[in-house]
């Protein structure tokens, strides 16, 4: 990883945590729907980067959000989960071109990008709400929260990636 890459990632990490806890945790659309776009950090982490490092950073990312929202290790678990599954999802959405390290998120075509982001978000939110609610009798609530929050997060993530994909 180059030096500027390192700085960009550190910056992205802190900014996403701060925005998440100060803004996105308090939207409460229709009473309970909040987006969790802080996983952008994991989504756009360099595809060639170290996998173990990403899992560790995902843990730290989740834990930072957990500390601020008094939720134990809910976000940490969900982030570690998707950081672990990311290579699989990358292969699934971008096909073999991922294997040859030629793909960049900003250059990928819209369909593949959408599949990748949606899969990451859905898995993250499913894990997040299962852990947060932690009760099988509230299964409907888990699925409902996952669905609505995912839609919200996907929209926000898409806007962010479109706005900041200047490096073509």
């Amino acid at each position: 990883m180059q030096n500027s890459d390192l700085l960009v990632n550190i910056g992205r990490f802190s900014i996403m945590v701060v925005i998440q806890i100060l803004l996105f945790n308090h939207i409460n659309f229709m009473g309970y729907i909040n987006p969790y776009p802080y996983i952008l950090f994991i989504v756009v982490f360099p595809f060639t980067g170290n996998k173990s490092l990403l899992i560790f950073l995902g843990f730290l990312l989740g834990l930072s959000v957990d500390i601020f929202s008094d939720s134990g290790g809910v976000h940490a678990a969900a982030c570690v989960f998707i950081a672990y599954l990311r290579p699989l999802l990358l292969k699934f959405s971008f096909g073999v071109s991922y294997e040859f390290n030629t793909i960049k998120l900003s250059k990928a075509d819209l369909g593949a990008r959408f599949t990748y982001i949606s899969a990451m978000v859905l898995l993250h939110h499913l894990m997040l709400f299962s852990m947060e609610i932690f009760n099988t009798s509230h299964l409907v609530l888990i699925l409902k929260s996952t669905l609505f929050s995912s839609i919200f997060t996907i929209i926000v993530l898409f806007c962010i990636t479109l706005l900041f994909s200047r490096k073509n």
Binding site: I55, F56, F59, G62, L63, D66, I67, D70, S71, G72, G73, V74, A76, A77, V80, F81, Y84, M131, F134
Partner: peptide, 22 residues
């Protein structure tokens, strides 16, 4: 790391006290 996070989650779901992450 997943086990650590899971343990913290379980800890947060049980009422009472010795919580580390607040």
């Amino acid at each position: 790391l997943f086990v650590v996070a899971f343990a913290l989650t379980v800890n947060s779901h049980s009422y009472h006290r010795n919580k580390y992450i607040t």
